[in-house]
Design a protein around this nucleic acid. Structure first.
Lengths: 211, 211
DNA sequence: TAGATTGTTAATCGATTAACAATC
DNA sequence: TAGATTGTTAATCGATTAACAATC
């Protein structure tokens, strides 16, 4: 029905969104692809191509209205509606996510934390209650959950993901260091911190060899 | 001197490394690109091309020795030497990183946390002391620091990065939601959690429109 | 030696950049 | 109307896949 847009383009959209937000804060009303290009250090051509995947948001001879473009990209990214998130694994990382207030400004609301550690039962983080894993079914039955963030050790992640999908959750933000094998209608976004660190390390070492 | 390898290839290397580690744990001694291909769901051709950027690690008619290849990729990624990391910003995320033991197994050792919050002065996380920011110069003078992780609010990140670079640190693991403008010999690896969440959100919304 | 599988070259595919007609 | 800048097509570049000779 609708042509698929490459992940390369999708990865760039949040960055456009961020720069446009900063332009709004700076009181800039309109911007040309050329001007944005020099700020963002990507080609103007790429900006126009990327945006035109989703529609014509500009105007010849004028450029783009910053506020309008910002809002349109927001809609494209699904930021115009609320996403309820549960965080499964209330360890350091899970709690860090729960404490991160900025997500809420974009419509991502963490509504519950889950863990197996009885010592955490009944506690809460920034007003978000930590539940025990056996309350999961009950919780999902009574609350809409759009996304589950997986922040438990990788040994538990696969089984946990299966259980979440079983309960009807179809979007996973996966921090566990493994590739989840899930039905293809389940959307998975991986954050592999170890991989990121290794890429950094590679670039350090290869610079050393180069210079 | 040495041909540059595309970031697309670099991004895949940690994943190869992970799968090979799992194969070792499973007691597998040798593997063909074809077999690895079906496990990892990438083409055998891509595996061979990727590896041959760095050298010929296989043997015709045999395939690849798992342990040997694992170690070679480890060397390529710089995992054969220790990387000392300081974490600047000892909030939830910074502490979560400090608590993450797995990094140490790969040679990434967090040697210090830094913050401006006096309430944290003298405390420590998993035996890693939290220092105040005014001790930074002193610390860097007396300890080798290979990487600085930036986990403070984005408003402070640019100035802080400049200060770190000034002190001779030339690799930044940036969790702050902005693009750092640093000399080009400084290696920066970004982890933009908000961007990741927006990509997930896009994929949720676009699936909804598609189905 | 025969079979298997790599390393590497050639072909294809997709993404980025350049160019320019359309149009505000 | 003239100038500016988009939307879009065409050209280029790079990355992925296919094919196969080399060789263990």
């Amino acid at each position: 029905m609708q042509k698929t847009i490459s992940q390369a383009v999708i990865r760039r959209m949040p960055r456009y969104y961020r720069y446009l937000g900063e332009l709004i804060d700076a009181g800039v009303e309109r911007i040309s692809s050329n001007e944005l290009s020099s700020r963002m250090k990507v080609t103007a051509s790429q900006i126009r191509q990327d945006l035109n995947n989703f529609g014509g948001f500009g105007q010849q001879g004028y450029g783009y209205n910053v506020k309008y473009l910002y809002e349109e990209i927001g809609k494209i990214l699904g930021l115009d509606c609320q996403h309820n998130i549960i965080v499964v694994g209330a360890g350091n990382l899970g709690q860090a996510l729960a404490n991160y207030v900025k997500f809420e400004k974009r419509g991502f609301v963490i509504t519950g934390l889950f863990d197996i550690n009885p010592a955490l039962a009944g506690l809460s983080v920034r007003g978000i209650e930590i539940h025990m894993m056996d309350e999961l079914e009950e919780f999902v039955k009574n609350h809409r959950v759009d996304i589950a963030a997986l922040t438990m050790p990788k040994e538990k992640a696969e089984a946990c993901a299966d259980r979440l999908v079983e309960l009807g959750i179809s979007a996973i933000w996966n921090f566990a260091h493994l590739d989840l094998e899930l039905p293809e209608d389940v959307v998975v976004e991986n954050v592999h911190l170890s991989d990121s660190l290794m890429q950094l390390s590679y670039n350090i070492v290869s610079r050393r060899n180069r210079v």
